[in-house]
């Protein structure tokens, strides 16, 4: 037998191992975090055994409960506001027609994505100082709404762009007025995009740290702020617990988003 060189088209030598290393790098820190959240020892890095004690302690902690409640409230209100504004804008900007100001409007909505978060954060702080809005839940909700709009906007617009125009035309042809067409045709078709946008907004809001850090006042501490404070004061096992919970929330929501947009691409093709 002669020694055969085997040539497989499109193979990059070593890419498989490289990719494996990539995913290990990506996930190892999270795995470490989750594992150590079950450590019974008070000293975070000193593994002595499995325990759920710190979960119990963390969940019973008044401050954490308050921070969690704040995070949830802020995320819910900001999501509802952002999704409403984004849906209205997407209904105009997601159509194939072109008009003056379309690109400008799209650019304006994407602005929060382009500006570095720290700049947005301090600018918003200055604004509240000038206008005289007390830093607190309201200021955080406003800042989050602005930041969440592009994240809500993108999936809704994508959904609209992929929508068949003739469906709305058919509806009008069948004697539905504008409102009925929107209510019975456009909105139901748009729903997966709106849900997807809501998922993203919610994650972005609940995870946000830098902007919240600058515009939160006394009594509006969110979970990320609380975590940051704990890390600053010295790491306790409770940080690991709360961090693990935050990870879990994000993963649940992003999975929901993923499934929603995937189903969407199945039904439109």
């Amino acid at each position: 037998m002669s020694k055969k060189k085997s040539f497989t088209l499109g193979e990059l030598p070593g890419a498989k191992i490289w990719t494996l290393a990539f995913f290990i790098y990506l996930y190892a820190p999270m795995v470490v975090l989750v594992v150590y959240s079950f450590n019974e020892n008070r000293r975070v890095m000193n593994w002595t055994g499995f325990s759920l004690d710190w979960y119990a302690k963390a969940f019973a902690n008044d401050n954490i409960q308050r921070a969690a409640w704040n995070s949830l409230m802020i995320a819910l209100v900001a999501t509802v506001c952002a999704v409403t504004i984004a849906t209205l804008a997407a209904l105009i900007l997601g159509r194939r027609n072109n008009f003056r100001g379309k690109d400008t409007s799209t650019g304006l909505i994407s602005l929060p994505l382009v500006v570095p978060e720290i700049a947005t954060a301090v600018a918003t702080l200055c604004f509240f100082a000038v206008v005289g809005i007390q830093l607190g839940l309201i200021s955080v909700i406003i800042a989050h709404t602005v930041f969440c709009i592009p994240f809500a906007f993108l999936p809704i617009r994508a959904r609209l762009e992929g929508m068949d125009d003739t469906l709305e035309q058919a509806s009008r042809d069948l004697y539905a007025n504008d409102w009925q067409t929107f209510r019975y045709v456009t909105l139901p078709l748009l729903m997966p995009g709106i849900f997807a946008g809501a998922m993203l907004s919610f994650i972005i809001s609940i995870d946000d740290f830098i902007i919240t850090l600058m515009v939160a006042g006394a009594g509006s501490t969110t979970l990320p702020l609380y975590i940051y404070g704990m890390i600053r004061r010295g790491i306790t096992p409770e940080v690991n617990v709360i961090s693990t919970v935050m990870l879990a929330i994000s993963i649940v929501f992003i999975t929901a988003y993923w499934l929603l947009t995937r189903r969407q691409s199945v039904t439109t093709h």
Partner: peptide, 10 residues
């Protein structure tokens, strides 16, 4: 999409 603060803390 997961919390950057948490991931960096890890």
């Amino acid at each position: 999409w997961t919390n950057l603060l948490v991931r960096t803390y890890a």
